[in-house]
């Protein structure tokens, strides 16, 4: 047994703060609670259509896991998303509560979930810091993570594209709330 451990450094508060996804303020969460989910549906459908059109290789990388049902649960919003990855009829639906018997459930703040898609965050790092919780079929989780990471989806731009004249202001607002992808040199102040 070692008589003395090698030098180690634990994550400091400053460093962790810089890398921790933000959360939607509680007052906003409460304000969103009574709003209906139905108006979200066309935006979600248009976003999914845009993503699939722009990144047709995503199903190929999902491989045998295409067709599985993923529950995406933002822990700071009063809703969740059901992502069904059937290659011919993929669908994403906003729900108040996720149904039982999903293949996978992924929980984290909405900033963490969006950051995972657009490359702002590393999934393993969010798991290590407990900012992300994954349960269910781990092969499907890993395949989805790798397929999405490789696709280089700009979720904000592709999602806002369907909003017509509101697209630009909506994109600006969302970008101000989300982490900058690390592939953007300005997002790495230590370099």
């Amino acid at each position: 047994m070692p008589s003395e451990q090698p030098a180690r450094r634990a994550a400091g508060h400053e460093e962790a703060a810089a890398d921790t996804p933000g959360r939607v303020p509680l007052v906003v969460q409460l304000a969103l609670r009574p709003l209906p989910l139905l108006p979200l549906q066309p935006i979600l459908a248009a976003t999914l259509r845009a993503v699939l059109a722009n990144h047709p290789g995503i199903f190929e990388r999902l491989g045998p896991h295409a067709g599985k049902r993923f529950g995406l649960a933002p822990t700071d919003l009063p809703l969740a998303f059901l992502l069904e990855t059937l290659p011919r009829r993929p669908r994403i639906t906003a729900v108040r509560a996720l149904p039982a018997r999903l293949d996978v459930t992924i929980r984290g703040s909405i900033a963490a979930l969006i950051g995972l898609v657009d490359g702002g965050y590393d999934g393993d790092a969010l798991f290590f810091s407990r900012d992300l919780v994954v349960e269910g079929d781990m092969e499907a989780v890993v395949a989805l993570r790798n397929a999405v990471d490789d696709a280089q989806i700009d979720l904000v731009r592709e999602g806002c594209g369907s909003l017509g004249p509101l697209a630009a202001p909506a994109e600006r607002l969302l970008r101000s709330l989300l982490p900058r992808p690390v592939t953007d040199p300005g997002a790495m102040p230590w370099n």
Binding site: P6, R9, A10, A11, G12, A18, T20, D124, A125, S129
Partner: peptide, 16 residues
């Protein structure tokens, strides 16, 4: 140091 600890398993680093 580059501030990469939050990227790491166990959120802890070592020179091993």
């Amino acid at each position: 140091g580059a501030g990469l600890t939050t990227m790491t398993e166990g959120q802890t680093t070592t020179v091993g």
